[in-house]
Design a protein around this nucleic acid. Structure first.
Length: 334
DNA sequence: GATCCACAGGAATCCTCGGGGT
DNA sequence: ACCCCGAGGATTCCTGTGGATC
C-alpha cells in the first residue's frame, strides 16, 4: 500500500514542482541578483493556507542553492519562533553561529550584532507565518543587514502590513508581492497524482477518487494530502487493496480534526481552556466567556489577558469573532 | 439623538524567571 | 551568596466605539 510515507507528510518538499510555474519564476526573478553576486530584494508571499506558499518558497530557494554554492539559507516558522530572541537565534543558527549562546539576555543585542557581522555571503531567510511575530521591529533589523534577503509568508497581506511602523512599511511596500490563490480541482489532482506515484503502490487509487479528495479539500493542498495520508493508512490498517470512496468519506472528518488538533496542541493551558469554553457554545459573548473562564480556571488571568488570548485564537483560525464592541460574539470555525 | 455602558485593544508598567557577574 | 539584567508575560490604565435605552 504505502511505499514511501515521507511524501505524504505535510512538510515534504518535492524535488520537482510542476504546479504554480508563474509563481516560481516570479520568485526566481526576484532572487536572481544573488546569482550575479548582487543583493536581491525581499519578497512577500500571501494567500490562504495550503496554497503552496511554503512549498514554493522552499523549493525555489533550494533550486537557487544548487547554482550558488556560497549561498546560505534558513527556514523559520515564526509561529514557533515568535519572539525577537528566538527568531534571531534561528537565523543565526542557519549560518552556524549559535555556539556558546544559551540565554536570552545580557550583552545587549549580541545576537543582532553577531548576525550583522557574520553574514558575509548571500543569505536567504524564509519567514513563514510572519504575521505571528510578536515584535515586527526585528524585521527592520534583518532588513538592514547587507546580503540578507527575506522571503515573508503570511495568509493575509493586511495582517503583516497594518502593524508595521512607517520606515518598515515604506521599505517593504516596494518588495515583490506574490499572491497565491486556492488551487483549482485539476491542480490539486495533479499534486495528489505525484504523491500517489511517489508514495503509494500502483493501482490503489484512480483519478476519479483523487478528484473526490480534491473536492473535499476545497483548494487546500495540505488538507488534500492529509486526507490522502489518512485514507492510505486506513486502507493499510483494514488490509484492503484499494482506497475506496467509503474510506475517503470516513477519513475526511478525521483529517480535518487532525489539522485542528495540531493547532490546539500548541496553545497554552489558559488559551486551551478558553477554546474549550467557546467550543461548548454555538455562540458566546466575551463577558460570558470570562465568567465561565473564571469559574473553571484555578488561577484565572485578567480580562485584558483573556482578550489577548482570544485575539490569538482568532489569528490561529480556531475561533471566529463576529460583530463589534459590545455585540461581539465568538464561535468556533466551522 | 443624547447618554450610558460593556467591551476592544493600544501603551505603559509591573512581575517573574533564568542565568551571569562579583 | 548575593545582586543585576533583559526578555516575555501579565496587569493596569486608558481611549475609542457601537449597541441599548430612553
Amino acid at each position: 500500500m504505502i511505499t514511501d510515507a515521507r511524501v505524504l507528510q505535510p512538510e515534504f518538499i518535492p524535488s520537482e514542482v510542476k504546479h504554480r510555474p508563474a509563481k516560481i519564476s516570479h520568485l526566481t526573478d526576484t532572487l536572481r541578483p544573488i546569482t550575479e553576486g548582487g543583493r536581491a530584494e525581499s519578497s512577500f508571499l500571501y494567500g490562504p493556507s495550503g496554497a503552496g506558499k511554503t512549498c514554493i518558497a522552499r523549493y525555489t530557494v533550494e533550486q537557487l542553492r544548487e547554482s550558488v554554492v556560497s549561498m546560505d539559507h534558513q527556514y523559520v516558522n515564526c509561529w514557533e519562533d515568535y519572539t525577537r530572541f528566538k527568531l534571531l537565534y534561528r537565523v543565526l543558527d542557519g549560518i552556524g553561529k549559535t555556539i556558546d549562546i544559551h540565554r536570552q539576555s545580557t550583552p545587549r543585542d549580541e545576537l543582532f550584532d553577531r548576525l550583522r557581522d557574520s553574514v558575509d555571503a548571500p543569505y536567504v531567510v524564509i519567514l513563514d507565518e510572519v504575521d505571528q511575530l510578536q515584535d515586527k521591529d526585528v524585521l527592520y533589523d534583518l532588513y538592514r543587514i547587507p546580503n540578507l534577503t527575506m522571503i515573508l509568508i503570511a495568509n493575509r497581506e493586511e495582517d503583516v502590513f497594518t502593524h508595521l511602523d512607517e520606515r518598515l512599511h515604506s521599505r517593504l511596500s516596494s518588495c515583490a508581492r506574490i499572491h497565491f490563490d486556492r488551487y483549482s480541482l485539476d491542480e490539486l489532482v495533479t499534486i495528489l497524482e505525484d504523491r500517489v506515484q511517489w508514495g503509494l503502490a500502483d493501482g490503489v487509487i484512480d483519478r476519479h477518487r483523487l478528484e473526490l479528495i480534491a473536492d473535499y479539500a476545497a483548494g487546500d493542498a495540505r488538507k488534500a494530502i492529509g486526507i490522502l495520508r489518512n485514507a492510505a493508512q486506513k486502507a493499510k490498517y483494514e488490509d484492503t487493496a484499494e482506497i475506496t470512496e467509503t474510506i475517503i468519506e470516513t477519513v475526511v472528518p478525521e483529517a480535518e480534526a487532525e489539522l485542528q488538533q495540531k493547532t490546539v496542541e500548541k496553545l497554552t493551558q489558559h488559551q486551551r481552556l478558553l477554546y474549550e469554553i467557546i467550543a461548548d457554545y454555538d455562540e458566546i459573548s466575551g463577558g460570558d466567556v470570562y465568567a465561565e473562564y473564571t469559574s473553571q480556571a484555578d488561577d484565572p488571568k485578567t480580562r485584558r489577558t483573556m482578550r489577548n488570548h482570544l485575539a490569538k485564537l482568532e489569528q490561529y483560525n480556531l475561533i471566529v469573532a463576529k460583530g463589534n464592541t459590545k455585540a461581539r460574539t465568538y464561535h468556533l470555525v466551522t
